[in-house]
Amino acid sequence: MKSEKLLRALGDLPEDLVAEGNLRRRHPLLRLGAILLCVLLLLSALYPFFRDRIQGRGENLPAQGVTLRGAAYEIWDADSVQAQRTGLPSAIQTEMVGMQIDSLDQGTVHLYLPAEDQNAVYILAADNAYQYLIFAGYQLPGDDGSTHVDAQQMFLTYGVTGAADLAAVTWQEEASTDPEALAALYDALVSADAFGEGELLPEQETEVSDYGDPVWLEAANGLRWMAYYNSGSGLFCWLGNFYSVGTDFLPAAAA
C-alpha cells in the first residue's frame, strides 16, 4: 500500500516536530481561568487609578496634594482670572472679582465643572494655605443671565463626594456656633485622620462664627458634613467624611 510508505516516511520527520506531538495541552478551561485571573489582577491593580474617574472624582490639584472630587475642573490662577472671566456670565465675574479682592490675596480661583451638568459651575476659592472653600454655585442657562441658584442644592447634587454618593441627604440644623466647640471638633477630626485623601481641609476655626449657622449634612451613605451656610454669599463648607470616626466627636444634639 502507498500509505505504508507514507507511514514509514513520517518516521523521518524532524525531531523538533516529533517532540511537539508529546507536548502537554492544558485544558481550555484552565487556560480560560488563567486568562480571567490575569485580567482580574490587572483590573484590581488599575482600579485605584480609575476609581476617581469612575466615581466622578477629580484629580489632585497641582502643588496642593488635595484631591478635589469632581468630574472636571479648571484651574485658573489669579493672573489668568482676569483674562478668563470675560467668558463667564457677569454674576460669576463679579463673584470672582469679589473673591479676589476680599478673600484671596494672591490665592487662586478654581472652577469646578461637573461632568454631570455642563451648565453648572462652582467657584472655588483658595487662600494662600490652599484651604478650599466652595464659594458659590451657578447654573448657567447658556447666556449671560445666569441665576445665582441655591448653592446648597447645587452642592448636594454635584458636591465633592460625587452625585452617586448622595442618594439622600438630610439637614440637621444645629444652633451650635460655639467656636471653641467647633475648634475642638476640628482638632479631634484631624487627630483621627478623618480628612484623608479627597477631603477638603477645614477653615481655621477662629473665624467660624462669622460665617453663619452651621448645619450638619448626613448622606444616606453615612457621609457627614459640617457646613456653614451664608445665604448672602453662598455656601461655605467644611467637609469631611466623618463616618470613619463615629459619632463621639459630634455635639450631642446632632449625634
Binding site: A9, L10, D12, L13, L17, V18, G21, L23
Partner: peptide, 24 residues
C-alpha cells in the same frame, strides 16, 4: 519516502501547534 517526508514536514510547519500535535 524522502519526498513524502519532505512534503509532510513542509505541510506541518504551516499548521498551528494544536493541529501538529494531533497529527503527530
Amino acid at each position: 519516502e524522502e519526498c513524502l517526508a519532505a512534503a509532510a514536514t513542509a505541510y506541518l510547519r504551516t499548521k498551528p501547534l494544536l493541529h501538529r500535535m494531533a497529527f503527530i
